[in-house]
Design a protein around this nucleic acid. Structure first.
Lengths: 190, 190
DNA sequence: TGCATTTCTTGAAGCAGTTCAAGTTTTTTA
DNA sequence: TAAAAAACTTGAACTGCTTCAAGAAATGCA
């Protein structure tokens, strides 16, 4: 089951057999059940998570006590709080499994040791995080320019399967409107 | 004037003298005048820009013909369209100088050659882009949880000098409200 | 210096989306 | 498979912010 991970890396760099051995012997796959958290607000985040199987979300609890999902992650995505990770500051976020999932959890010191043994991984992580930031820029563009209904239509056209996979209220908050309004959009009453 | 660049890199990795020589001989500083563009919508972006001096913004023109600023960059920030850069797809963005500025423009092939000669730069860029993505996550949090007035107050508390530096209408669109509403917030009439 | 351009201000009218509250449907679990 | 919990729906009242239009102030440039 490491294949999901190794294949993702090898989309960007090529690995020697010995490097694959290092990765497999340094890393483990953990099962995380639906609704379990891998990060809670105010914790310092010292781990990066690569999703092998399942779905996670990063969310906050706003001042009205409502959960707002800021990011989803599925197979082959990384999820973590990079700011907390790099600055050793308490996180503002929760990261939770939305489905029963399998992840590779890489602690900071393990990551550093892997990056020394396999320096090419810096390149892999550099490219992946630049592309992820590019995707975040597009997300902000959509949030700024589209109405709630347009954001929903656009997202469901691009990710029809994913829309089935998560509760509507989570998707509503990810698209920055209320769960009630999502209901009205879907009923054509918006 | 490369010092701004070299010092930024050396916050994250250390450079040997020969590596500094390679950088200085491969790179040039360009002056970009206020209002000049370094990227236009529909162009493929094949350059990364490091800002030595001045200020840039990334913006779009929305369907009402109004400019909306998605991102600012000042001294020691990188600015580019990473999605267009990595996927060779036409950009959705404009990147423009807000002040008379100086930048280091690094084309993709020059970057690749530098990364081969100084592999450590992968690490520098990896860390910088992960932190930048972390900042984007926080930005989305603020957009989701704060009212227009709270976003303005929060931003001006964190960046009091910067607020003086750019036209109000650019900052208004960056904070996702109208220029008119900015005026009312500042007058205490919101 | 003076004209043109850009930027900022103000008020009135309007509306996209929220909030609240209550009920219904679906899913989970014992 | 029944009861509990989670998720979804609906309508009515409300509001934070936009839009429009017009004028005032500041800045840039010949």
């Amino acid at each position: 089951m490491y294949s999901v991970f190794l294949e993702h890396i090898q989309k960007f760099i090529s690995l020697e057999t010995f490097e694959i051995d290092i990765l497999e012997s340094s890393l483990a796959i953990s099962k995380i059940n639906k609704k379990e958290h891998v990060l809670q607000e105010s914790q310092v985040c010292n781990t990066m998570y690569f999703i092998i199987k399942g779905c996670f979300r990063q969310y906050i609890i706003n001042n009205k006590g409502i959960e707002q999902t800021l990011q989803f992650g599925v197979e082959s995505w990384w999820i973590t709080d990079y700011l907390s990770f790099h600055n050793h500051t308490p996180s503002h976020f929760y990261i939770q499994a939305v489905e029963n999932s399998e992840i590779i959890a890489i602690k900071k010191n393990v990551l550093e040791s892997l990056l020394i043994q396999i320096p090419k991984l810096e390149r892999y992580l550099r490219i992946v995080s630049q592309k992820t930031f590019g995707a975040a820029q597009m997300r902000i563009k959509f949030l700024f320019t589209m109405s709630a209904e347009e954001r929903y239509q656009h997202f469901s056209n691009l990710n029809p399967e994913f829309v089935q996979r998560v509760p509507q209220y989570m998707l509503a908050s990810y698209l920055d409107f209320s769960a009630e309004f999502m209901s009205k959009i879907r009923a054509g009453k918006a």
